[in-house]
Design a protein around this nucleic acid. Structure first.
Lengths: 246, 246
DNA sequence: GGTCCACACTTGTCATGACAAGAACGATGA
DNA sequence: TCATCGTTCTTGTCATGACAAGTGTGGACC
């Protein structure tokens, strides 16, 4: 493991253990250099990493201080529709309409950084809350992961919990949110008129090695689901706004 | 502006302009060093920035390639449409269609925790990027802040920069994102058909004392703007997913 | 006591140099 | 033709040194 990662890991451990409490000053760069007998480069890289993770603050002239010691649990909430709904006290449901192994389309191949035509496993699921259609999920898994799905009853419980047991970890995900008009299939399965606006979340999740594991196109009824973001000037923002030319 | 920012800005511009298309190789570090007559440090910092923004890929031994020609900007510039667009190397524009002082409606009063009928200042603005209508902004300010707007040429520059100079700080904001169908006014000003899906962001920003300062209903053309969130198990995501009964 | 300012300290930026690790590519041999 | 192996190029990591820019503090001065 590179030096800067060891420094970052050590700082994370000291912060998580409470040895460095929230508000405490983080050792200065020169102190860390002396402690690790290192130059500033790896020390700064470690601090930059922690800053990107939102664990420490600081800036030019301002010594770094601990901002957070807790690591987030809401990550799983983003992936798992089931646990999210259950956490709200509602009853999640699902109807798996299709599970298929087929060659990757251009769009999917690009999202998963595969070659076009590589076999993937695709899932089409209708998600319900309290029995009412809420979301339509078109998920694509890379083949090694998708293979596991054929041994799983997709309507029985949480898919991601099952994949986690099988050793599939999703560590980082990118969500892109926009709006689309409902097509015939959307209309039928979400019980909305054709052309009505839907809230779309396209999600790409990567495994521990940083390689994409799944890509999903989820369409929500906007009268039932919305996304919200709360942020402050202090907290590290996790929200981005993209503009694309058409 | 530091050298690494200039390098990053130049690369962003070249990518956004199409000079470097998606899939094209980004100039190697050594080439950039020669081009800018700089050492590797600022060049690498610029590339690291673009990589964090998702614009380029690459890795050890793998030359960087352009991944997206769209840019993601962190949340600091999220409130300000102008500075966001400018950071992308595009030309922001705006047309203030209406500025009015009127009693608060129920919806607005609720969002700003005012009593219904309390005077507020409302702004209706068409926002443009490179001259093309991109967003329609219906913003409501509480009266003490809104009063300042009558002394400001809303089409001249950044509204939030002006308010910041006047001592108005927005420290915390809550954003709610969903999809709506375009009504007649949306259709006219965004140049889309009536009923076509729009991406809506409803924003409530609070000042240092925690009291609401502004409430805004912004409607984006989904073919031009989307929101994206990147999260990991380490970093603290600031995104929530809400469900509401209808 | 209050104000202002110089100074120490911190982090940000950048140059230079070096080596390691991984990937791409062409040559080589089967 | 295809697999294999090195060469070479690229990026990752780290040391050393230097200066700039911002912050905070303590002391001098009013």
């Amino acid at each position: 493991m590179p030096l800067h990662e060891r420094i970052a890991a050590d700082l994370r451990r000291r912060i998580a253990s409470g040895e460095l409490a929230v508000g405490d000053p983080v050792p200065s760069e020169s102190q860390l250099c002396a402690q690790w007998n290192a130059s500033r480069a790896p020390v700064r890289q470690a601090l930059t990493t922690l800053r990107a993770e939102g664990m420490i603050g600081g800036g030019r002239g301002k010594p770094a201080v601990v901002r957070r010691h807790t690591l987030s649990q809401p990550f799983e909430t983003f992936l798992s529709f089931s646990s999210w709904a259950a956490g709200l006290g509602h009853v999640p449901g699902q109807r798996t309409l299709e599970i298929a192994r087929r060659p990757a389309s251009v769009e999917v191949a690009d999202a998963l950084t595969l070659d076009e035509g590589t076999p993937v496993v695709q899932l089409l699921r209708q998600r319900l809350i309290d029995g009412r259609p809420t979301m339509l999920e078109r998920t694509t898994f890379v083949e090694p992961v998708g293979r596991l799905l054929f041994d799983f009853d997709c309507d029985s419980g949480s898919l991601y919990a099952y994949l986690g047991e099988q050793g599939v970890d999703m560590t980082v995900a990118r969500h892109q949110i926009d709006a689309v008009a409902a097509d015939e299939k959307d209309s039928e399965l979400l019980e909305v008129p054709v052309g009505s606006p839907l809230l779309r979340e396209r999600r790409r999740a990567c495994g521990v090695d940083g390689r994409p594991v799944e890509y999903s196109d989820d369409r929500y009824r906007p009268d039932m689901v919305s996304f919200s973001i709360e942020n402050s000037q202090q907290a590290h923002p996790a929200l981005l706004r993209d503009w694309r030319a058409s």
